[in-house]
C-alpha cells in the first residue's frame, strides 16, 4: 500500500560498507567498500563465488558480525536510520521483526533440543502480543505455506525428524513469519535438489510480493537469481564488480567475471547428454583474500587483463541502462578497465 508512495526512497541503503576480520593469518577484508540501495518490495540478487563475502554482507546488515570480525566503516541505513554499530539491545528489536535472515545451512540453524513449533512461535512471542493459541495458528499457517504436509502434527516434532529440505522450509517459515520488511535469504535453496529449489524460490517470491517485503537473495547460482531478482549485484573478493538491473546484467554483462559466471550456468539445451554439463568454467581459483594482488583482484584470472589492471584498482562506474520490465532508467555499473562491449 504505502510501497508506491515511498518508491523513490530506498528501504535499505548500504554505503561503503567494510567488514574486516582480524585473524592470525592476516587481515581478511571480507567486505570492502560495498554500496547498494534496495527499494521497498525490490528483490536484489547478490551473486559471486564462494568466499566472496556474500554472507558477511548479510550478517553485517543483521548486526551479527562477531570478533575477530568487525564493521570497519560505512553506513547501513535502514528506513533512513543508520543501523551499523547499534548496540545488541537496539538491534534486537529490528532483528526478526524488521529484518530477518534465512541462514545458509538448514542442518545447523535449528536448535536440536526444541520442537520446530517452539522455534517458529518464538519469533512471534518475541515480536508480537499474540496469544499462545494465535501463535500456534500462525505457525501452522506458515508451515502450510512453505509446503510442509500435516503442519499440526509437525509442530511437535524435533529438527532431527525432518529432512534437509524440510528443515530449510522451517527456517524459511521462521524468517518470514513476522512479516519482516527486509528478508535476507542466504542461499536458501542450494542445499536442496533442483525441483524443490524452484518450488521454494517461487514460494518465497510469492510471499515477498504479497507482503511487499524487500529481499536480498544471496546465491552463487546466477540462473536462480535471473528469474527472481529485479537487480543483481556481483561480488568478487569483497567488492562489487558489477551491479544493475537483472535482465540487463544477464543479457549484457560488462564485467568479464560476470560473463564467466553466466557462461558457467548449466544449459539444459546443450547437445551433451548430461543436463548439468557446464559450458565453461572461469579459469583459476578465487585468490587468498588475505593476499590480494595489487590492482584488480580478478586480473590473474581474466583473459582481458592488461598491465593497467595489475597496477590500478578499477572503480565502479555507472552506465545507464534501461530495465526492460519497467522501462525506467536504472544505473548499470561496472568496475573494469576493459569492460565488455555492449552488443545491442
Amino acid at each position: 500500500m504505502s510501497n508506491n508512495e515511498q518508491h523513490s526512497k530506498p528501504l535499505l541503503r548500504v554505503q561503503e560498507l567494510r567488514t574486516w576480520f582480524y585473524t592470525f593469518g592476516g587481515l581478511v577484508k571480507a567486505v570492502d567498500g560495498v554500496s547498494f540501495d534496495l527499494a521497498p518490495g525490490e528483490i536484489m540478487g547478490l551473486v559471486g563465488e564462494s568466499g566472496g563475502g556474500k554472507s558477511m554482507i548479510g550478517f553485517s546488515i543483521m548486526g551479527l558480525i562477531d570478533p575477530p570480525g568487525r564493521i570497519e566503516g560505512g553506513r547501513i541505513e535502514f528506513n533512513g536510520k543508520n543501523i551499523a554499530g547499534l548496540s545488541e539491545d537496539e538491534m534486537r528489536v529490528i532483528r526478526g521483526k524488521e529484518i530477518a535472515m534465512i541462514f545458509q545451512d538448514p542442518m545447523t540453524a535449528l536448535n536440536p533440543l526444541y520442537t520446530i513449533g517452539n522455534q517458529i512461535e518464538e519469533t512471534l512471542a518475541l515480536h508480537t502480543a499474540l496469544s499462545a493459541r494465535e501463535r500456534r495458528a500462525k505457525a501452522i499457517e506458515m508451515l502450510h505455506k512453505v509446503g510442509i504436509p500435516q503442519p499440526e502434527q509437525r509442530l511437535s516434532h524435533y529438527p532431527h525428524q525432518f529432512s534437509g529440505g524440510m528443515r530449510q522450509r522451517v527456517v524459511i517459515a521462521i524468517a518470514m513469519i513476522a512479516k519482516p520488511r527486509l528478508l535476507i535469504a542466504d542461499e536458501p535453496t542450494t542445499a536442496l535438489d533442483v525441483t524443490i529449489q524452484a518450488q521454494l524460490l517461487r514460494l518465497m517470491r510469492q510471499q515477498v510480493v504479497e507482503n511487499g517485503t524487500s529481499m536480498i537473495l544471496i546465491t552463487h547460482d546466477l540462473a536462480a537469481v535471473s528469474q527472481m531478482a529485479d537487480t543483481i549485484v556481483v561480488l568478487y573478493c569483497g567488492r562489487i564488480v558489477e551491479k544493475g538491473p537483472a535482465e540487463d546484467i544477464i543479457a549484457r554483462p560488462r564485467h568479464p567475471y560476470t560473463r564467466g559466471l553466466i557462461d558457467s550456468i548449466p544449459h539444459e539445451t546443450a547437445e551433451n547428454d548430461g543436463p548439468k554439463q557446464r559450458l565453461s568454467q572461469i579459469p583459476g581459483n578465487v585468490p587468498d583474500i588475505r593476499k590480494l594482488p595489487p590492482g584488480c583482484a580478478f586480473a590473474p584470472r581474466c583473459s582481458r587483463a592488461s598491465e593497467r589492471c595489475r597496477m590500478q584498482d578499477p572503480v565502479l562506474m555507472e552506465h545507464n541502462a534501461i530495465a526492460m520490465g519497467s522501462g525506467k532508467l536504472r544505473p548499470h555499473a561496472v568496475a573494469c578497465h576493459h569492460p565488455l562491449a555492449v552488443s545491442p
Binding site: I94, R95, K97, M101, F103, A109, E122, L126, V171, I174
Partner: peptide, 10 residues
C-alpha cells in the same frame, strides 16, 4: 549456528 539464528530472530 542455531545460536546465531536465535540472535537473528531478535
Amino acid at each position: 549456528d542455531y545460536i546465531k539464528f536465535a540472535r537473528a530472530k531478535g
